[in-house]
Structures are given as C-alpha cells and as structure tokens.
C-alpha cells in the first residue's frame, strides 16, 4: 500500500482525528457533571472568601449554605451584552457588594471576584476565580502578598477612568489607590489594571437604587 497516496493520507488523518477526538470527547462528557460541580464549588469558595463569610465545613453544601444565609443577589447587565450577578451582604456595616470581573490577561482570560463597600469608595477584598498566567510570573497575582494590597484600597474617582486604581509605579507613590505590580510580570499587572478600571466604570454607571436584591436561589440540588 502506498503510504503517500492522497487517499491514504486523508483517510489516515480522518481516522486519527476521529479516534483521538472521540477520546477527548468521551473524557469530556464523562466528567462534565463533575467539572460543573467543581466550578460551582470554586466559585462559591471564592465568593465566601472574598466576603469573609463564616463557613462551617469543607463540603460544597457548606459553602452554598453560607452564601444563602448571608447574601442577596441581583442580576444586572454586564455592559458587554450579557448579564451577571451582583451580590450584597446586608448584615455587614457598612453594606458591601461583590461582583465578578474579567478581562484578557497575558495568555488568556483572567476572572476575578471583588467585594467593595456599597458606596464603591473602598475595596474590601479581591480574589481570583480563574486565570492561566505564567507560573512564577503572572500567576503570582494569586499570592497573598499581592492580594492583601487590595484590602482597603480606595479608587480615586476624580482620576481618569483608566487610572482610578493604579497597579504599578505611579506618582505620587503614596496614593491610596495604588498597589505594587507583580515583579517581572508587567503585562499581567497592566492588563489587570486595565480591566479592573473598566469594571469600576461600569459599576458606577449602574443605577443602584433600582436594583432589586433577592435571596439566592438554592444553588445546590
């Protein structure tokens, strides 16, 4: 058999694609429910951690229950043609709101969750849901040393829309709206700064008084 005949080449590639495509698809479908559950658990964990909610155990249901007890949620347009959830914790004083934000990092999407005071004057905590930045460089945005800087950060609403929160060197360096960039990961830091500021702008544009917060739908079956 001629291994270089176009027919053989095409047939071989088709077969190879079919076999390996089917392999990947099988694994994907077999684990789909687990993946979805894991994703929800990760989301709930990050939300609980960002709001500082007391969680009783380590089981998925514990996180869901903690959220149901403390948070109310409203669905708002995300300003990019979709919808998303804004959470509010009413029993905190001052009241705080939490929201997801995302944008392009160096390699792929970075997804984060931020909690702010309801007047949007102070950031309470920032966490990341998902990212694919370079290990040892951009991925260090997940380290406590970087995340802790955001606690109590005050966006400067009088500054230009892309400089309300500064990540990296800025003058004056003592400004209350500035955090240090991750050393060696300029691109990740500046990308984060860009889409965090975009998100702040969208949040400010929201009509907060008309939002109707509702109890969380029981997210666990």
């Amino acid at each position: 058999m001629n291994r270089n005949a176009p027919g053989y080449v095409l047939g071989f590639m088709a077969l190879l694609c079919a076999v390996f495509g089917a392999g990947v698809a099988t694994v994907h479908y077999a684990t789909r429910d687990m993946l979805a559950a894991n994703e929800r658990l990760n989301h709930n964990r990050v939300v609980c951690s960002a709001f500082g909610l007391p969680v009783e155990g380590r089981a998925p249901a514990d996180y869901a229950r903690a959220m149901e007890q403390a948070l109310v949620v409203a669905t708002v347009p995300d300003g990019r043609g979709g919808a998303r959830s804004v959470y509010r914790r009413a029993d905190a004083d001052p009241p705080v709101v939490g929201f997801t934000f995302w944008g392009m990092g160096f390699w792929d999407r970075i997804e984060g969750f931020a909690v702010m005071t309801a007047d949007l004057e102070t950031l309470v905590r920032l966490r990341f849901l998902d990212h694919k930045e370079t290990p040892g460089l951009g991925a260090r945005i997940e380290e406590a040393a970087f995340l802790d800087q955001f606690e109590g950060l005050r966006p400067d609403w009088t500054a230009a829309p892309d400089r309300r929160v500064m990540i990296g060197p800025a003058a004056p360096t003592q400004a209350g709206n500035r955090v240090d960039a991750v050393t060696g990961a300029t691109q990740t830091s500046s990308a984060l700064m860009r889409f965090l500021n975009e998100e702040l702008e969208r949040l400010r544009a929201l009509d907060w008084t008309s939002l109707e917060f509702e109890p969380l739908p029981g997210s666990e079956p």
């Binding site: 590639m13 190879l16 694609c17 390996f20 990947v24 694994v27 684990t31 993946l35 894991n38």
Partner: peptide, 21 residues
C-alpha cells in the same frame, strides 16, 4: 501533524481528568 495531534489529545485528556477529579 499526526504527532502533534497525539500529544495534544493526551495532554487534554489528562488535563480534563485532573480537573474533574
């Protein structure tokens, strides 16, 4: 290209399995 395909498939399968488990 057949080799790249094989590599990519293996890595993706293992990646999905770890993500699930």
């Amino acid at each position: 290209i057949a080799q790249v395909l094989i590599i990519a498939s293996y890595v993706m399968m293992v990646d999905t399995l770890i993500r699930a488990l």
